[in-house]
Each structure stands twice: as C-alpha cells, then as structure tokens.
Amino acid sequence: MNIFRLAGDMTHLASVLVLLLKIHTIKSCAGVSLRTQELYAIVFATRYLDIFTSFVSVYNTFMKLVFLGSSFSIVWYMRYHKAVHRTYDREQDTFRHWFLVLPCLVLALLIHEKFTFLEVLWTFSLYLEAVAILPQLVLLQRTRNIDNLTGQYIFLLGGYRGLYILNWIYRYFTEPHFVHWITWIAGLVQTLLYADFFYYYFLRFIGGRGVE
C-alpha cells in the first residue's frame, strides 16, 4: 500500500459516500445516471468475485464489501425507492449502456493476462469500468447544469483512478516485475474520459458558478 493508492481508495470511498448522502438524505437522484450505477454494480460484481476465495487483507475485504454494498443499494434506491425514483430523469438517461457490456466482454475474452474464468471476468470489469461513466457524462451534457453534490460525485469518481495511475507509476519503480499493461491502459482511458469534465469543473471553481 502506498499513499497514492490509499488516496485513490479514499477518493473512491468519498465519491460513493457523497452519492449515498445525496440519495439518502435529500431523497433525490436528480442528474445521476442510473445506467452508470448499473454498470458500476456489474463492475464490482465481476471484479470482486474472489472476495471469498483469496484474502488479501481486512482493509481489502472491507472496502470490497463497501463498494459492492453501496453500488447495489444505489441501484436499488434509484429503481425501487418511491421518493428517489420520482427524481430519476428517465427521459434523459438513455445511453445504450448494454451496448458497452458486450464489447467489453469480447475484448476480455481476447485480451487478458490468463485465460481463466475469474481472470477474464476481472479483465472485463476493468474494461467496463473504463467506459461506465459514459451514460453519466452524456446525461450531464443534457441536463446542462447539475447540483454541487452530483458534480463532486463525478469529480471524486474520476479522480480516484487518476490517483491509481500515480500508484501504478510508484509501484512500477519500486517493485520489480510490476507490469500490468491491461490495468494501466484501461485506467488511463477511464481517466482521460473525464478530461473535459475536469476542465469545466475547475472553471466552476475559478468562476464560482454551478457546473455548466
């Protein structure tokens, strides 16, 4: 564990807590894409399949349970909780996210580190996470400006993988044989997809306006 990875995990945890705070306290999911949340639930379900078979640390298992529990409960809230579901913008959240799942699965079957069931699904979760934010970014463009909590959620979600990139650089130089091109490229693509969001997000900070 290094400070970049810890900062990344804490940023990721913060993004989840901000979203849960918004949905649970003000019972609103306005501006939040249910489709991105569904993709993230699939990402965690396929990435943490080894949660019961390979124990890394208490921290690792605890965080996996937090991410699994929060992603599925956010999907549940947005789909079935009456008050929250009413604030869901169904007409605008129309990105065909299932069209993202199949190509990621095919790519994972073609490009992976080991051809085993767990490894292919784990690789699939990396590819899917890289594009999982697309429905949210499309919804963002359609709803024009969003409330601060949603903006902070997206900012933190985009930042966590950027911190992981610093972690990979650190580990590459400090650990021999630490080379994982698939993880690195997927993480880089994922972070680059946030580029224009980060640009407008920082403009907001400078200008002090809402996120346009």
Partner: peptide, 10 residues
C-alpha cells in the same frame, strides 16, 4: 504471477 501483485488492489 499476476495474482501476487495486481489482485491486491481494489
């Protein structure tokens, strides 16, 4: 092997 050091991340 990859199990050693890339599965210890979230």
């Amino acid at each position: 092997s990859s199990l050693s050091n890339s599965k210890d991340e979230l």
